[in-house]
Amino acid sequence: MVDSPTVDTRRPEHTGPGEGATGASARARRVLGLPDPVERSEWRTAAHRALERLGGPVGLAVAAAPTIAFVAADAAAGLGAAFAALGATAVLGCAVRLARRESPGAAIAGLLVAVVCAAVAALTGEARAFFLPTTLLPAAFIAAYVVSLIARRPLMGIVVNPLAGGPRAWREHRDLRRVYTLSTLVISAMAGANLLVRVAFYLEGQLAALAALQVGVPVLFAVHFALTVLIARRVAGRSAAAPHPGPLAPTHP
């Protein structure tokens, strides 16, 4: 546990511009009876970074719009209207991403996903087939996670370690290897649960539930990713701060 820093309660003789502004804000809060601002915790920061990784509120809305438009239009006017709504929102979403100067590859990838899902639905003639590619996709991730664990190279370590600032030889670092192994096991279980639930809703034709999963599940995975980065960064920092024993002095008979 880290001790709180000692606070000097003496009145300063001079205040700079920043200190004056802080003092004025504190006095205003006292006059209005407002609580002092609370510093954002590391966990909230991790959640905030996870949201930013998904593009923030605007990015989430852009990603969710085609799916929601497809399901709503299908329920209201049938499959033809659903394709029209999907096409309009997918193209608009691509334009918004480009206007926000996001990666052109990500913008085009979102458009291609919509095209593939629409093509599957058109070939089968069923609206639920729109969700078939994303329903089966978790199976590929599960296979990748399992293979990485069997090879003793947990996939979360390969992806997260560069972002966490961990050492290159993280596989030789017992604590970091445990973090990445546990994180890979957790995300494998999440992917497995996601697959089972998606398959169940797909077989029952629950389009609204499938749409909710398609919109909400990426947020959960992004939060897990951000928490893994945070924990790995802490573990790597503790390892770097730990004293290392010096070279052994030669012994003489």
Rank of each mutant, 00 (worst) to 15 (best):
G23R: 12
P57W: 08
H244I: 15
G16L: 11
A169W: 01
R234W: 01
H14T: 15
M1C: 08
P104I: 03
P162M: 15
T15C: 11
G125I: 11
L92K: 02
L227V: 02
P17Y: 12
V96G: 11
S25D: 13
L111S: 07
L248K: 10
L182C: 06
V229W: 04
G55S: 11
L207F: 04
E204H: 12
T45Y: 04
A50K: 03
G18Y: 06
D175W: 01
G237I: 12
A81P: 00
L86H: 01
P5H: 12
N194E: 15
G192K: 08
H224E: 15
E39N: 05
L123I: 05
R100F: 02
A28Q: 07
S148W: 08
G55P: 06
T9N: 07
V7W: 11
W170A: 00
S239T: 14
T184C: 12
A46N: 04
R40N: 06
V116I: 15
L51T: 11
V223T: 03
A99Q: 12
D175T: 06
L155H: 01
L230W: 14
I142F: 01
V215Q: 12
S103V: 03
L34A: 15
L111P: 01
A107E: 06
L132V: 13
A88N: 08
R177M: 09
L51P: 00
P167A: 14
I187Y: 04
G246H: 03
L32V: 12
L220T: 09
A200D: 13
V62P: 02
L163R: 10
R171V: 04
V120S: 07
P104E: 01
T228P: 06
A82K: 07
G55Y: 01
R233F: 05
R30W: 00
A73Y: 01
A127I: 09
L176M: 07
A119G: 14
A72N: 02
M156A: 14
P66M: 05
Q206T: 10
T181N: 01
G216Y: 01
A191R: 09
A24D: 08
A107N: 02
L86F: 08
E126H: 14
A50P: 06
A169M: 08
V199N: 06
E42C: 04
M1E: 09
I158N: 01
G192C: 01
V116R: 09
R49T: 05
L185E: 09
A81Y: 05
V71R: 02
T134N: 10
A222F: 03
G55H: 02
G33W: 05
T6P: 02
A50C: 07
G56L: 11
G56P: 07
R27K: 14
W43P: 00
R174P: 00
A82V: 10
A129I: 01
R238F: 05
R97Q: 12
L92W: 04
T15L: 14
A73S: 09
G205A: 13
T15F: 07
T22R: 10
A127Q: 08
P35R: 15
F221D: 09
R234Q: 06
L196P: 00
A122F: 10
L210K: 11
L163P: 06
